[in-house]
Design a protein around this nucleic acid. Structure first.
Length: 354
DNA sequence: AAACCACGCAACCGCGGACGT
DNA sequence: TACGTCCGCGGTTGCGTGGTT
């Protein structure tokens, strides 16, 4: 491992890069690849630290970087993704080809954030600053929204990695969950009764679901008044991960449903659904997202330990009246409808705003 | 013309996760 | 398990530039 001495460290250059330094760095990387960043400066004849070299390369010199003004389409994408992911610039950058996280971050801080603020939209919550819709105080509304976005962000993080292939499979998979079957180890599911009652207010969670549904929808869905997404009406109040079994027990809808993790002869693990079909990690995630969209809120907390290694996570049900999931998205007058139009309004405003 | 200010952007800093020893 | 190193990320800083007074 190459380690710089104290003397070397003291003479390391900082600050703006000169064209000569850029040339040296580019020439070296094009010939050898960057390899170990720590040892690169010495090999490339640069008096910089490896970190500085890496930053210069990834944010500026890399040949696949697009420079120049952001298009309105890029602005839209950034705003949408920021609403879901928050300040996770690297994740946002994955969805804007040839833009670096640093560039997107700077663009947000210097342009988009201010633009939204001038439009009367809180750039943190992406909600109108004077939110009188629910007659709550601004602070309380912000707190609720922060909670919403945090949850939505966790969901989106998984989803964004898997992208469009999940959309294609979503109805098929949800359908498979609704077939009759009995999961094994249901007797172990004693911890579900310890699930804490919903800690979030009833009126904000459905909005979170409908917001998330907006992001699940394709671009065409957003433009069209009719969502193509649908989820089953089955009530499944709890979601649990117990050791190697992911269970979706149903207490009041007749029949239990579940996904079981099994071990193959070579020691690899795999998932099966209730009818014995092989499932991938993607499938598991889609299923959970489907349940969320039908109005179940993961409380994101470990609610108990059984034996040494059995974990349980609670999934709190939201009452059907409050469930404004994806299937309701086109209903005029519903909160999800308002949310949808709120988003369209934001995007239109961003486009039109000088 | 000079001083001041605001803005945009490149670069730095500190932290935390992953990995190897 | 503990420690050290590498790497990537998000927040912050500071410099250059253009506009205003």
């Amino acid at each position: 491992m190459v380690k710089s001495s104290r003397g070397e460290k003291a003479t390391l250059k900082k600050g703006p890069w000169t064209p000569e330094e850029d040339q040296k760095l580019m020439a070296y990387i094009q010939q050898h690849g960057h390899g170990n960043w720590s040892s690169l400066p010495a090999k490339a004849g640069l008096r910089r630290c490896g970190k500085s070299c890496r930053l210069r390369w990834t944010n500026y010199l890399r040949p696949d970087i697009k420079r120049g003004n952001f298009s309105s389409q890029e602005d839209q994408t950034i705003i949408q993704l920021h609403a879901l992911l928050g300040n996770r610039w690297s994740a946002i950058a994955l969805h804007l080809s040839k833009r670096t996280d640093n560039e997107i971050k700077n663009h947000w801080n210097t342009h988009l954030k201010k633009r939204l603020t001038r439009m009367g939209i809180d750039p943190t919550t992406h909600k109108p600053i004077n939110d009188a819709v629910h007659g709550r105080s601004k602070d309380a509304a912000n707190l609720n929204h922060m909670a919403q976005w945090e949850t939505a962000r966790l969901q989106a993080e998984s989803r964004l990695v898997r992208e469009s292939k999940l959309r294609l499979r979503i109805n098929e998979l949800i359908g498979s969950f609704c077939s009759q079957a009995s999961p094994t180890r249901l007797n172990s599911w004693t911890l579900t009764s310890q699930s804490p009652s919903p800690t979030t207010t009833a009126d904000n969670i459905p909005k979170m679901h409908s917001m998330y549904a907006m992001m699940l929808a394709t671009e065409d869905d957003l433009k069209s008044p009719t969502s193509t997404l649908s989820f089953p009406d089955t009530i499944i109040p709890n979601f649990g991960l117990i050791n190697q079994s992911l269970l979706l027990p149903s207490s009041n809808a007749g029949g239990d449903r579940g996904i079981i993790m099994k071990e193959a002869s070579d020691g690899a693990s795999y998932w099966e659904n209730s009818v014995g079909s092989l499932m991938r990690d993607d499938d598991i995630m889609v299923a959970v997202e489907g349940f969320r969209s039908r109005g179940y809120n993961c409380n994101n907390s470990m609610v108990g330990l059984q034996n040494d290694d059995e974990l349980a996570y609670g999934f709190n049900e939201i009452s059907p009246q409050q469930n404004l999931g994806v299937s309701n998205i086109e209903e005029e007058g519903s909160t999800s409808f308002e949310e949808k139009h709120y988003w369209e309004t934001i995007l239109n405003l961003v486009n039109d705003f000088p």
